[in-house]
Design a protein around this nucleic acid. Sequence first.
DNA 1: TTGGTCCATCTTTTT
DNA 2: GATGGACCAA
Length: 723
Amino acid sequence: MDTLANLNTRQLEAVTTSSGAVLVLAGPGSGKTRVLTHRAAYRVHSMGADPRAVMAVTFTNKAAREMTSRIVELLGGDQAHLPGMTLGTFHALCARILRREADRLPFTREFVIFDDTDQNSLMREIVKQLGLDPKQYSPARLLDTISRAKNELIDVTEFASDTYFNEIAARAYQRYQEQLLLNNALDFDDLLFWTVRLLRGHDDVRAAYRRRYQHILVDEFQDTNSAQYALLRLLSGPEPDLFVVGDPDQSIYRWRGADYRNVHRFQEDYPQAQTILLEQNYRSTQTILDVAMAVIDRNPGRRRKQLFTERGAGRRVTLHEAYDEADEANFVVETIALLTQGGLDPRDCAVMYRTNAQSRTLEDAFLRAGLPYQIVGAQRFYGRREIKDLIAYLRLIHNPADRVSLLRVLNTPPRGIGDKTVAALLQLAEAHQKGPSDILLELAASPDDLFSELLDRRSRTALLSFAKPLSRWLERRESYSVIELVDEVLETIAYRSYIEDGTEEGEQRWENIQELRQAAHEFTEFGLTTFLERVALVSDQDTLSEEQNAPTLLTLHAAKGLEFPVVFIIGLDDGVLPHQRSFDDPEAMAEERRLFYVGVTRARDRLFLLRAFRRRLAGPSTLSEPSRYLHDIPPELVDGDVPSVQTWAQASYDFQTKWESPPRPLAQARFRAGMRVRHPAFGEGIVIDTQVDLDDEEIVIEFTGEGVKHLVASMAQLEILDS
DNA sequence: TTGGTCCATCTTTTT
DNA sequence: GATGGACCAA
């Protein structure tokens, strides 16, 4: 094994520097993962560390997997070194600890993990219970407030009811926590929250984990939130071997509680910490790096990095203004087709966007062109209705206390259990101080004597049709494998005939179920608990396969940590990127800029930046302004031989002056089809079509030798020759 | 009382 | 263009 070969001086220093607290500030493409994996391997191989004492934390399972295989490779492909090394996401690690220590906690080791859909349905119920107006107190907003509190490790009793909204939120928080425990469920934030509580409250547990994890390594440190940081401090103890790698410029999860200031906090909390700066980039051309720096250097209050590469300048960045989002998508598809014809692998291309909604137009364009693509996230597999249904059945079998899952599947497929019957069941449960599942099971055991007077015949029959199979599944849950349970459930509830409605969509849904069956099959030896946990903790990034040779479509968030030879970033319009929801918050705006920076720095060789002249955001399509980031890019880095760049530059100039002037009244139509006109750049042409749009007129013109152009009357200096 | 259909609503990013 | 809520027929 050679853990130290092929490292530059800085990287070598990071890998071999002695124990203690070490902070590596690593620019994009500077070998961050490399340093991390080498250090882990070096600890074990050359310093004689027990692999069991090494813990490496990442944010996605994919990153964890990748790290595992790279460490294995470094250790000479010798799997024997790895057993016992702990590699995983914060959430997976916490889930593991909590299951192990469940007897000290207010839930059992069978707890389920609620995803956002589950959280939402629970909160909706609570809003109803509290008699709140869901418009004013939307479940999403309440959950957001609660999540933020949990990330700051603030529990219900500490939650400040300093505003009227927070007073309401405090009540919702209280209920929400009660209901979670009643369901024997934890949400994502709870995984971290309870682990910190556990370690803080139990000296022996804390001591045991500290003894166990002597060497801790953290990837993407800039994305840690307060709870995660507290957890790291608790685990690493007063004499840490704590190695964190991050880049504040790539911090893009503030909205999820991440706080890049943890980087500064780290330096304050560990005054002896070594800080190592990695600036040499092994990924991109210098042009791409220069574009990236030009953009990010405008963010205030940051430590500047001078990114450099030995790769040379490379090609200039291509800017393109499309007419609308369909045109934008077509440009992407056509360009990829062209590049592919030139010998490029389709899988070397990636298309990135700010919001998932933007993927639809792209998918359309790819489909129409008959070209394959793969997409990360969007409608996440485990978020699909049919998958959630089946998982809910499994979760219920695993943990009958899970009311949210029970209520989801109780009448799916429909079996005559409507609102009234559900209400009756819940009331009965309430009256007997039991969970609704317990009532169902008792009903199944003795249908006649119990509750008969409390439920009308219809409800009882309907409930029995669910209760009977449920009790049968519960009897079998120990002896059956996951796949056997899945098949048993599918069979009993006749799920196939329920979702296959003859449409293509139904067909697709059944195929998804088959895919889940396949996944369940792979978990035969691990059992239901592990299966459900994995299902709850997979992320979109984890779904990316490298097998398919097709371009990748993904959000800028999902792109972090990846790289592609050719990158398209679409939707460079103000309001999309930066997103309009961030406009009034300077911190959020700084994050939008970082997001763009992340996108740019994914590119190895070529970068295409696209925007659309008009775009549909919400409601009708409107004219859009170019993203402010485009103005920050030095013109000499931009490819000038794309004809539309001039149009774009002019348009952007005109837009600026236009938006600064007072709104104009509705435009008068000046042009008609058939008119001959002259344009300063395109020459003479014939008007094909015109349309008045609010304060302007759009004209489609066929220019001699230049083809068809869409222009706007106020911008294009058109001269009418004759009509 | 249930279950289907229709309509309005909104759509940032996700472990 | 999905998702939840309101409305209506059986």
